[in-house]
Structures are given as C-alpha cells and as structure tokens.
C-alpha cells in the first residue's frame, strides 16, 4: 500500500521525461524528413515550375533544370547528346531532320546563335557573346527588346497576377516566352469567347415570362486565367 502512492508520485515524472525525450526525438526525425522532403520537392518542382510552358504541357521531367525545357517540339533529351561533336553550322535554313518541327519566324533575327550559345548549347548568349544561363531567358529578350523589357518591369507590358499591394503579398509576372514563342514570337490569334447577347448551351424557350429563369441559361465557357498560357511564373519581388 505504501508503494502504491510512491509509484504514483514518481512514475509521472518518469513518464514525462520519457515522453519528452520521445517527443524531442520525434521532432528531430520529423525535421530531418521534412528537410529531405522539402529539398527533394524543391529540386523536383523547380523543374516543372521554374518556367511555364507555352500552351502545351511539359514533357517528361527527366530534363534537368540546367538545360532547356524541351517541351515545344516534343524533345525529351539533352542538346549535347547530339551536339557534343557536331560542327556548328550558322547558315539560316529550313531544318529537314532534327528540329524540323521547330517553327521559326523571328523577323530579321534569323540566326540561331543570336540567342543560343555556340559552344554551350544549353545556355543562351549575350550581345557581347558571353554565356547567359538558360534561366535568364528574360535577359536574353531584354538584350534586343529594351523598350518592351522596361515596360514589362514597369507594368505596361506582360501579364501580372497576385497582389498590387506589395506590402500584402507577392506580385507575379509572366515571362516573355510564356506569351511569345521565342522562335515565332508574334502573339497568335486566339478564339474569342461568345458575345454577351448569345446564349450558349442548354437554353430554355426565349419567350418564357419573367421569373422562369431559375435554371441556368447556358453552361459558362471555361475560363482558366492561370492555365490559359501556362502558369504564372515564380513570385518576383524585385519589381520596381
């Protein structure tokens, strides 16, 4: 009988200590796993989220971030797989074999190596001939289209989303190549949504009296602002 109270008074602290150690261990393990997962997630998501696609979805994601995202022509491989020993050919021409799906129409800017680096194919080139990492594609365009780039920074060119009030949240800015295919940059004509007076979908007899319009006149057309031309790019804080 005397032991019982003792065990009662002593065992709780023991349990507390044990529980505390367990919790601490659990936290450490959790933090470790979370760190692993987050770093894995980061390297994983940057591949798909760093740069948005033109209207088409991304291709197989085994292309690492450092190389271009070869989605437009359906590539799923690294440039250097073929180009490591190919002699560079600067003549503008229509491609017959490889890259034949690539539509090219950038006006007078008709030389591949105006943009792609001659030796570092997975990178771009600056006007001075230096290597420009492929992630800096906005700088690539800016090199020749300074006016548009300035307006893009200022807010008069390109698309924005998120928060106009930067003290509340981040602003997202759409990159040039989301709207302009770098090889054929003219903004393509798109299909308009129906005019306001036209009912679409299941319509009920037009002359039904007032109040009978309980049911939906038409199924709304699908408007997906974010997916229309690829997702918005990563938040950009250094906006003016």
């Amino acid at each position: 009988m005397d032991d019982a109270p003792e065990t009662r008074t002593e065992s709780p602290p023991n349990a507390w200590v044990a529980g505390g150690v367990l919790v601490a261990l659990g936290l450490v393990a959790y933090a470790g796993v979370a760190w692993l997962l987050s770093s894995a997630a980061q390297s994983r998501t940057t591949v798909t989220e760093a740069r948005p696609s033109l209207a088409v979805p991304f291709g197989p994601d085994r292309v690492p971030l450092e190389t271009l995202q070869l989605h437009k022509a359906g590539f799923a491989y690294d440039c250097d797989e073929c180009h490591y020993d190919r002699v560079r050919d600067r003549t503008p021409r229509t491609f017959v074999g490889e890259h034949s799906k690539l539509e090219f129409d950038h006006g007078r800017n008709d030389r591949c190596f105006n943009c792609h680096h001659e030796t570092e194919l997975t990178s771009f080139v600056t006007a001075a001939g230096d290597v420009l990492p492929s992630t800096d594609h906005v700088k690539l365009c800016a090199g020749c289209h300074g006016t548009q780039h300035r307006d893009w920074l200022g807010g008069a060119h390109g698309r924005r989303s998120g928060f106009w009030d930067r003290s509340v949240g981040t602003l997202r800015r759409t990159d040039c190549i989301v709207c302009h295919d770098p090889h054929r940059p003219a903004f393509r004509p798109i299909e308009p949504l129906p005019p306001p007076g036209v009912a679409v979908g299941p319509v009920h007899p037009p002359l039904e009296p007032h109040g009978a319009v309980q049911q939906i006149l038409r199924t709304p057309p699908v408007v997906e602002p974010d997916t229309l031309r690829g997702p918005a790019p990563a938040p950009d804080e250094d906006a003016p």
């Binding site: 928060f163 106009w164 509340v168 602002p225």
Partner: peptide, 12 residues
C-alpha cells in the same frame, strides 16, 4: 491588395 479578376484573366 489583390488585382481585379479581369486583369488577371487577360492573356495579353
């Protein structure tokens, strides 16, 4: 602090 819906929807 957010943008109007029409602004975010504009593809151009």
């Amino acid at each position: 602090g957010r943008y109007p819906a029409c602004l975010e929807a504009c593809p151009t």
